[in-house]
Design a binder for these strands. Structure first.
Lengths: 334, 334
DNA sequence: CTGAAAGCGCTTACAG
DNA sequence: CTGAAAGCGCTTACAG
């Protein structure tokens, strides 16, 4: 009379002839397991195509094996790339990411309850968001490990790119050319979803120009929506002000691409008459010859996820900020 | 010597003087609980601010109390509103939604593993996506309840709007005006993330025009990116072809708004010289006087979530398709 | 309608 | 380095 295995992990234990305690240790990469034992267990796991019951693991261990990622939205290439970096890093720890796009101000109240599912995970990653600003009325328990990406705060580990420096580098380079100067900005989300990213790039740009004694008039600062068409429309507006020579800091590659399309359509010659600089160095920027500020977007996500995982694993060190320096990549457009 | 409660639910049981079995029944809205008992228990729950341990519930019940929502991206108003409808409905069942934006073709492989976290939930909702197309190489187990929204398939319950009819209604109405006809389309995602939504609207539009003996030339079919700027740029292109009278079907309100901005900028008079029709009837369409096809976006999400929850609760009925009829809302722009 | 008890499938001190 | 056993906090037949 053979005993019936009660759980899947017992099947593995039986087949491998190893206790389920040790099978569990193998599953969790526990260091104190003999190499040969590990091999035997892994073989049985493969043979049975065993996957541990996620809910049982979470319950028994007290870990969710997942982090919560808060972001304004998902749909732009930026957040897709941040997410890619985050997922790459989490894969190393066999952790999952649960996505919580805020989307709108009114939807924020879904996150004001500290018992919300979003707060049941082992750590929180805020992208382009300030948790303190979000919860200034209704502070939620940030007692769990928390890291910011594409944002800055004194209280938490942060990973971001120096946007002001990026704007400065763009301004420094563009100001070596003759002609009029323009900057195209993206309209920000409303508080509290706003970030200062584009404002920072503007500040750096203005600083660099000012150092050369150049003032940029208000009408040369153009705001559009974040889209190809936005860039195109901005370019048409620019061309109504001056024909050439022109120097345009588009503050992101998507706008720069829209600008370039219009410039070409208008028959102006790039570099000679018009200079355009983007920001991001998206994978396709090279194909279009866009001069731009490179920022390591996946790396931001990856680094933030890494810091967060270290916190989850128990790192109690002082708060840390990682700032990446953008790099000017000179190509055809300037 | 009082016994120490081992779990939070036991605190509630003790305080209310009711067994934890019954406390659990109250928590799960079990019908067979005396009204007074329920009241007593709820009072104790409130007093202790008790929230059940989610992981324990999932483990013990075998339910995750969550559904997985697959969509191309999140960031456009459309998906935000679908999600809103889904969340509203799920709140009724105390269910959560886990978001899985596919984002890119290469990212699809994250979802090819049937053990992926996305498939651990109680049901699947696909928005603007065809699960069979997604998994034609690597079919994943759709043995759990599955519903489609903004899409159609023979195999699953579906909820969608009749886009072809919408296009037809736009064409029927616009064709009563004199002048030239234009249609502005949104460029689709690449396979397998593509949907036929805008293609359907085009088909309906062409059918209506054809019935009046009108053929729409190829150059009057303009594709742009989904953005305000896209609409503006399309309008400028239209104005280079003909000045007036013009009839433009913009296929969504965002494009229509961009078109209107350009039309006004060009000094043309709406209705007399130019007619513009959008699609969606977004909340702000009224403010801008956009004539449009109304579609109940939240309702699509809500209905899809409802069908899914009924399936999860055990409904084994035949597959069902719910199709909403778009409605022409006449306002200032046409 | 309610309670005592078993059980969900893992993890983890504890002892060896 | 490994195993036997207790335990994680709920749900749910089962009996009444």
């Amino acid at each position: 009379m053979k005993t019936v295995p009660k759980s899947a992990i017992e099947d593995v234990a039986r087949l491998s002839g190893i206790s389920k305690s040790t099978v569990s240790r193998v599953l969790n990469n526990h260091p104190n397991v003999k190499e040969e034992t590990r091999r035997i267990v892994l073989k049985a796991i493969r043979k049975l195509n065993y996957k541990p019951n996620l809910h049982a693991r979470r319950f028994a261990s007290g870990y969710s094996y997942a982090i919560s990622l808060f972001l304004p939205e998902i749909g732009t290439q930026f957040y897709g790339r941040v997410l890619k970096g985050v997922e790459e890093e989490l894969d190393e720890y066999s952790y999952d990411v649960a996505l919580f796009p805020l989307l709108s101000q009114e939807r924020l109240k879904r996150f004001s309850n500290p018992h919300a599912a979003a707060y049941q995970n082992d750590g929180f990653l805020f992208v382009s968001l300030d948790p303190e600003k979000l919860h200034h009325l209704n502070p939620f328990p940030l007692s769990k490990p928390t890291v910011l990406a594409d944002g800055y705060s004194e209280k938490f580990d942060c990973v971001y790119v120096d946007n002001r420096l990026g704007g400065y580098l763009a301004g420094q380079y563009l100001s070596s050319f003759p002609g009029e100067f323009f900057i195209i900005l993206v309209e920000e989300f409303e508080f509290p979803l706003s970030t200062r990213v584009f404002g920072e790039r503007l500040l750096g740009f203005e600083t660099a120009l000012k150092e050369k004694g150049i003032d940029i008039p208000q009408r040369n600062i153009i705001s559009v929506d974040f889209s190809l068409g936005g860039g195109q429309i901005a370019a048409r507006d620019v061309l109504q002000i001056t024909k050439s020579p022109l120097n345009i800091f588009a503050t992101c590659d998507l706008l720069a691409l829209g600008v370039l399309e219009e410039i070409r359509g208008a028959g102006l010659s790039l570099k000679d008459e018009v200079r355009v600089i983007g920001f991001d160095d998206q994978p396709w920027a090279k194909d279009y010859g866009i001069t731009t500020l490179h920022q390591p977007i996946e790396e931001i996500g990856k680094t933030a996820a890494h810091l967060l995982m270290e916190r989850i694993k128990g790192n109690k060190g002082v708060t840390k900020a990682v700032s990446f320096k953008p790099k000017l990549i000179k190509r055809n457009s300037a």
